[in-house]
Each structure stands twice: as structure tokens, then as C-alpha cells.
Amino acid sequence: MKRLLGALLSSALLLELLRLDYTKVSGGSYAYYLANWREVGIPNLVTAILADWRAYDSLGEATLLFAAVTGFYLLLGGKRK
């Protein structure tokens, strides 16, 4: 019964979300990145975005990993087997 309900809910959600249109619009930041690619001086666009334009976010992601590991260490690292 529970499983049936879960399957029903998730499939309803999935159908609802699949109704949306997932095509990309042109313009926006991506166009800016493509246009000013040379300015950064990096041949690889992904790294240019990750490590230069949005380096602040990458710092945040690294911190997120640090937080997860520290929390893990706090909970499980105290005692040995």
C-alpha cells in the first residue's frame, strides 16, 4: 500500500515535470561567456567558468566538501572499532 502510494506520487510528479518545456533559450550569461572567452586566456570554457568567472562558487563547493568530511569525521572518527 505504502509502496503503491509512493509510486503513484512520484509518477504524478514526474509527469507534471515532464510537461514542462526543456529547450534552451539563446542569450544570457552563456552568450557572454562565449563572447568574452578570449579575455580570460583559457582554451577550456568549462574551467574558465569554474575557476575564473565563478571561482567564488568553486570555493564554496570545496568548502562544502570540507564541511561534509569534517562532519563525517566528527560523527564516526571518534572511536576505533
Binding site: 580570460v40 586566456g41 583559457i42 574551467t47 574558465a48 575557476a51 575564473d52 571561482a55 568553486s58 570545496a62 566538501l65 570540507f66 561534509a68 568530511v69 563525517f72 569525521y73 564516526l76 572518527g77
Partner: peptide, 25 residues
């Protein structure tokens, strides 16, 4: 590339050691 390479080195060491630490624990 500027600081990108140094930034990458830092992130690589950070991420690598983090995962190793998780597996150690």
C-alpha cells in the same frame, strides 16, 4: 590562465585528500 592553475592545484589536493580521509575513517 593566471591563477586558474594554482586554484586547480589547491582544489585537486583538497578534493583528493578529502575523499581519502573519508575512506580512512
Amino acid at each position: 590562465g593566471g591563477t586558474v592553475m594554482t586554484f586547480n592545484i589547491g582544489v585537486a589536493l583538497k578534493v583528493g585528500t578529502s575523499f581519502v580521509l573519508v575512506f580512512y575513517i
